[in-house]
């Protein structure tokens, strides 16, 4: 479901949340990534890899894109990509 290319599973941790279930304004540490090769490559090229801390800024209504902040960069991600980013909430 995530773009072209084969599905890749990087690492998966049991009871973590994905980005879509994080509340707006909450931060989380990335503990797993799954999705198409292109989406994963691009996420990591932006520094959103395992261990990165991201903050969820907002989410559009009805499974629309999700905006996250990593450092000083804001990125808008489609719902499907956000679903593949597993996080552990911080604080």
């Amino acid at each position: 479901m995530l773009g072209k290319g084969r599905e890749v599973e990087e690492e998966c941790v049991g009871d973590s949340l994905d980005l879509t279930s994080l509340r707006d304004g909450e931060s989380g540490r990335v503990v797993g990534l799954r999705g198409g090769r292109e989406a994963l490559e691009k996420l990591q090229a932006m520094g959103i890899g395992i261990g990165a801390v991201v903050a969820k800024k907002s989410s559009a209504a009805r499974r629309g894109p999700i905006v996250i902040e990593k450092g000083r960069t804001q990125v808008a991600l489609g719902y499907g990509i956000a679903k593949g980013i597993l996080v552990e909430p911080i604080g």
Binding site: M1, L2, G3, K4, G36, E38, A39, K42, M46, P65, V67, T73, Q74, V75, A76, L77, G78, Y79, G80, I81
Partner: peptide, 10 residues
């Protein structure tokens, strides 16, 4: 075919 997902820096 599926369309790829939204992904852009703001």
């Amino acid at each position: 075919g599926e369309s790829s997902e939204f992904f852009t820096e703001l």
